[in-house]
Amino acid sequence: MADPGIHGGDDVDHRQDSGNRRLYNPYQDLQIPYRTLYDLPTSPEFLFQEESLAQRRSWGENLTYYTGIGYLSGSVAGASLGLRRALRSAEPGDTLKIRINRILNSCGQDGRRIGNRVGVIGLMYAGLESGMVAARDTDDWVNSVLAGLGTGALFRAANGPRSAAIAGAIGGLMVGAAVAGKQVLKRYVPI
């Protein structure tokens, strides 16, 4: 917070420096209401009362968040895999331009491919989780686990029922582990 003596107001600054001279304060006589300018509320402000009662993101925010996080993390992981692949495929006679071109092409191709996949998984998960919240009219861990199960099954549904069942089980277990880990962090890690 700003020093009250700097902005004038009710507090008059009579501080002195080491030479026993009074320090000059250009804001002393302006009577600026600094407290109303700098003491801002720390809680979010809502336009409607119903928004303040909800303790979770809306379906649109949820959709944007999971899709964006999925695409970004998938792109970074894909780019790192592409970098590894490009460095392995380097030949001894390549020039620096060819090596840089190979690295950029490989990072871009793998980053885009994996980023799109993980972004679509995030999109499906967000849609299924928001649908489960709307259908069950409750927001608990069951919605998240069922959304993970449904996302895995839906993502691999084109490969057959066995692949969809295995992917659904993996998705449900991954989300269940994430929900359990979040609860452990909330309980034992002071934030």
Results as ranks from 00 to 15, higher is better:
residue 137 D to F: 07
residue 86 A to T: 04
residue 96 L to I: 13
residue 94 D to N: 12
residue 121 I to T: 11
residue 135 A to V: 02
residue 101 N to W: 10
residue 120 V to Q: 03
residue 95 T to V: 08
residue 117 R to P: 03
residue 103 I to H: 11
residue 123 L to N: 08
residue 121 I to R: 02
residue 120 V to N: 04
residue 103 I to D: 08
residue 117 R to N: 11
residue 113 R to H: 14
residue 116 N to G: 12
residue 100 I to Y: 07
residue 134 A to M: 00
residue 134 A to G: 02
residue 100 I to K: 09
residue 107 C to Q: 04
residue 96 L to C: 09
residue 99 R to D: 06
residue 125 Y to H: 10
residue 116 N to H: 07
residue 93 G to D: 04
residue 102 R to E: 14
residue 115 G to Q: 10
residue 100 I to C: 09
residue 115 G to W: 10
residue 98 I to Q: 14
residue 121 I to C: 14
residue 125 Y to I: 04
residue 113 R to N: 15
residue 127 G to F: 02
residue 133 V to G: 06
residue 110 D to K: 05
residue 131 G to I: 01
residue 129 E to S: 06
residue 113 R to T: 15
residue 108 G to I: 00
residue 129 E to V: 02
residue 110 D to A: 09
residue 95 T to R: 05
residue 129 E to L: 01
residue 107 C to F: 03
residue 98 I to P: 03
residue 118 V to C: 10
residue 131 G to C: 03
residue 119 G to M: 03
residue 102 R to I: 13
residue 117 R to L: 11
residue 117 R to Y: 09
residue 103 I to P: 09
residue 86 A to H: 02
residue 96 L to P: 06
residue 107 C to I: 03
residue 85 R to C: 10
residue 101 N to P: 05
residue 88 R to S: 11
residue 108 G to K: 02
residue 95 T to A: 12
residue 104 L to M: 13
residue 130 S to K: 00
residue 125 Y to Q: 03
residue 108 G to N: 00
residue 108 G to M: 00
residue 124 M to L: 15
residue 113 R to P: 07
residue 91 E to R: 13
residue 98 I to D: 12
residue 87 L to F: 03
residue 133 V to F: 06
residue 101 N to Y: 08
residue 130 S to P: 03
residue 118 V to P: 07
residue 117 R to S: 15
